[in-house]
Design a protein around this nucleic acid. Structure first.
Length: 370
RNA sequence: GCUGGAAUCGUCUAGUGGCAAUGACAAGAGACUGUAAAUCUCUCGCCUUCGGGCUUCGUAGGUUCGAGUCCUACUUCCAGCA
């Protein structure tokens, strides 16, 4: 069983520590999205320096390249990437939702590789095997996301996710029994879309399984997220960690997530937006490519202590983006990733100090001022 | 000086008589939430009650129902010859 200590509780919110074989994660924590075993534009050294505690790779992308077995040969995701710290893998289930030409059956999902068109099938069992080979500390169950917001589609996806969860747990236990020298853990994934009764059903189902924690999937908007998380996290057992899958581009989501009992987050938004020139500040996001920053010799964010803000100006970043220099994306990614990581760190501190409510209100009213 | 050739939106460019006129870049703005994203979208002569109106292809004239496209002169640039 994955060790998870809760230091402090406040309503549904909690402060804790997840003890993984590769080190501890002080929660709540933002996990960097390292889809293809790299956080785009950043080195692992830079990730450590900006305060990241864990990264999350994607099984779908990693089996296409370089292959799960190769990562196993390299000693696992943490060693292969030189991250050395705690790691998660997403199951690849999300790709069912995001890729076109996907055939979903009870057995699994048939894809065509977007790289060379090779036919390829992922099942709960294959996802588990691949995740064990990739060797992240924490694996996500292979789940199914509905293609639409319609209740009947959500229901079908949820039931399929549950059926697949049983197979994931069985396969996980099976591999665990034969790989006794390895310690790897499984999270079940809660589905149910925007329907709280379905979410409750899904949470109950997941809670009843022999898993180490939970992912909350299929969340795409903050609207109604508080109620949904309240429902789900009131049902999920308190002593196991919960990961809010894919949310965190909007700081609001991190506050809501933490307040309603989520322990970890991952999101591609911060680094993707960084690459596209959209940078976080306490007063909201700015597009550094805008002409108004041409002669702005202040840092992106004066209250920020990241390497970008400590050393470079908006005018310089503007110049790097306008001239399409690769350094633009690096510095911007350092800043944005640091912004979300440190924001969640501050949420953690505020929960410990009992100043969460104040921090949240101050932060959000300023960030979403306009 | 002579003989050819060329002048189109910030730049390069399409365009050889028929509705401001192609494409790229640049520029301006927007989007992005378990990453087929170093991506994508929109604007880019002026005005607009969004139907349209007005002014544009070096300058000035001309031919024509109609000219960026044809003719003449001029200006500038390029190449060759002196």
């Amino acid at each position: 069983m994955l060790k998870f200590d809760i230091e402090k509780k406040s309503g549904l919110a909690r402060v804790g520590i997840i003890h993984t074989p590769h080190g501890d994660i002080k929660t709540p924590a933002f996990v960097g999205a390292a889809t293809r075993a790299t956080v785009k534009a950043l080195t692992m050294e830079q990730m450590r320096e900006l305060g990241s505690q864990a990264i999350l790779g994607n099984t779908y992308h990693l089996i296409l390249a370089p292959g799960a077995d190769l990562i196993k040969k390299a000693g696992g995701l943490a060693e292969f990437s030189s991250w050395h710290g705690p790691t998660f893998t997403d199951s690849g289930g999300f790709q069912i939702f995001s890729l076109p030409d996907v055939k979903i059956t009870e057995n699994g999902a048939k894809f065509k590789s977007h790289i060379n068109g090779d036919k390829f099938e992922m099942t709960p069992e294959s996802s588990m095997r691949d995740q064990w080979a990739i060797g992240a500390d924490i694996h996500m169950a292979f789940d199914h996301l509905a293609k639409s917001e319609k209740r009947e589609d959500m229901e079908i996806a949820m039931h399929r996710t549950h059926a697949w969860l049983d197979r994931c747990v069985a396969e996980h236990q099976h591999i665990k029994a034969s790989e006794r020298h390895l310690e790897q853990y499984l999270y079940a994934v809660v589905q149910g879309g925007t329907f709280n009764d379905l979410r409750a059903k899904s949470a109950e189902y997941c809670a009843s399984k022999d898993v180490d924690g939970f992912g909350i999937g299929g969340v795409f908007t903050a609207d109604g997220m508080d109620e949904m998380l309240k429902t789900v996290n009131s049902i999920l057992p308190e002593n196991k960690p919960r990961h809010l899958l894919g949310m965190g581009q909007e700081p609001r989501d991190l506050f809501i997530g933490a307040e309603y009992g989520c322990d970890t987050f991952d999101c591609v938004g911060p680094t993707r937006m960084a690459r596209n020139g959209s940078l976080y500040t306490l007063d909201g996001r700015i597009n550094i490519k805008n002409a108004k920053f041409k002669e702005d010799f202040t840092p992106i964010m004066s209250e920020c202590d990241c390497d970008c803000c400590k050393n470079y100006t908006r005018a310089y970043l503007h110049h790097l983006f306008k001239t399409d220099e690769i350094t633009a994306k690096i510095l911007a990614s350092i800043h944005n990733e640091h912004f979300v990581v440190s924001t969640v760190d501050k949420i953690r501190k505020s929960l410990l100090n009992d100043t969460f409510e104040e921090y949240k209100n101050t932060f959000l009213s300023r960030y979403y001022h306009n």
